[in-house]
Simulated scan of single mutants.
Amino acid sequence: MKLGAFSVSLSVKDLKASKQFYEKLGFTVLGGGMDKNYLIMKNENALIGLFQGMFEGNIMTFNPGWDENGKDIDNFDDIRAIQQHLKGEGIETGTEIDSKTSGPASMMVTDPDGNVILIDQHR
């Protein structure tokens, strides 16, 4: 199963302070914006999302159809196929994505230890 680009989405208290901290670790801004209350930051192939006031806790994120630069890739597994596979494995995927649709969609699953995984397809 191809889940796409991986990142960790961090819930931060102060976006400016977090940006400055991760810049000191060598990360640069790839997307988002201070005015949007989130930044996507990159250091080589590592991606992190900094989100202020959007959710509680930290989330692992996969983006089917994207590489680690947020660029479209040709060969990827659509989120609807991923949903069907996970359901077949007995994993609860939350609200059902209509299999007759195409394009952007998202779902969340939770691992046995309570870690949240967001699968977020943007195309």
Score class of each variant (00 low, 15 high):
residue 4 G to S: 07
residue 5 A to L: 09
residue 6 F to P: 00
residue 6 F to M: 08
residue 6 F to Y: 14
residue 8 V to F: 12
residue 9 S to T: 11
residue 10 L to S: 04
residue 11 S to M: 01
residue 11 S to T: 02
residue 11 S to P: 00
residue 14 D to G: 00
residue 15 L to Q: 04
residue 16 K to M: 10
residue 17 A to V: 10
residue 17 A to L: 10
residue 17 A to C: 04
residue 18 S to P: 00
residue 21 F to Y: 14
residue 21 F to R: 09
residue 22 Y to A: 04
residue 23 E to L: 05
residue 23 E to S: 11
residue 24 K to F: 15
residue 25 L to C: 10
residue 28 T to I: 08
residue 29 V to L: 04
residue 33 G to S: 11
residue 33 G to M: 06
residue 34 M to T: 12
residue 34 M to R: 06
residue 35 D to S: 14
residue 37 N to F: 07
residue 40 I to L: 13
residue 41 M to F: 06
residue 43 N to C: 15
residue 44 E to Y: 10
residue 44 E to D: 15
residue 44 E to C: 00
residue 45 N to H: 15
residue 47 L to Q: 08
residue 48 I to R: 06
residue 49 G to L: 11
residue 49 G to T: 14
residue 50 L to E: 06
residue 51 F to N: 14
residue 52 Q to G: 07
residue 54 M to I: 02
residue 55 F to A: 02
residue 57 G to R: 04
residue 58 N to K: 02
residue 62 F to D: 03
residue 62 F to G: 02
residue 63 N to G: 01
residue 67 D to F: 13
residue 67 D to Y: 13
residue 68 E to R: 06
residue 70 G to H: 07
residue 73 I to K: 09
residue 74 D to R: 06
residue 74 D to H: 09
residue 74 D to P: 01
residue 76 F to I: 05
residue 76 F to W: 13
residue 77 D to G: 02
residue 77 D to E: 10
residue 77 D to H: 05
residue 78 D to A: 09
residue 78 D to P: 01
residue 79 I to F: 09
residue 80 R to Y: 02
residue 81 A to P: 01
residue 81 A to F: 07
residue 81 A to E: 13
residue 81 A to V: 11
residue 83 Q to K: 00
residue 83 Q to W: 01
residue 84 Q to D: 15
residue 86 L to I: 01
residue 86 L to F: 10
residue 87 K to V: 12
residue 89 E to M: 12
residue 89 E to W: 14
residue 91 I to A: 13
residue 93 T to M: 05
residue 95 T to P: 10
residue 95 T to G: 07
residue 96 E to Y: 10
residue 96 E to M: 09
residue 97 I to M: 05
residue 97 I to G: 06
residue 97 I to T: 03
residue 99 S to K: 05
residue 101 T to R: 04
residue 104 P to S: 10
residue 105 A to M: 01
residue 106 S to Q: 11
residue 109 V to N: 05
residue 111 D to R: 00
residue 113 D to F: 10
residue 114 G to K: 01
residue 116 V to G: 01
residue 117 I to N: 06
residue 117 I to V: 15
residue 120 D to A: 07
residue 122 H to N: 15
residue 123 R to K: 14
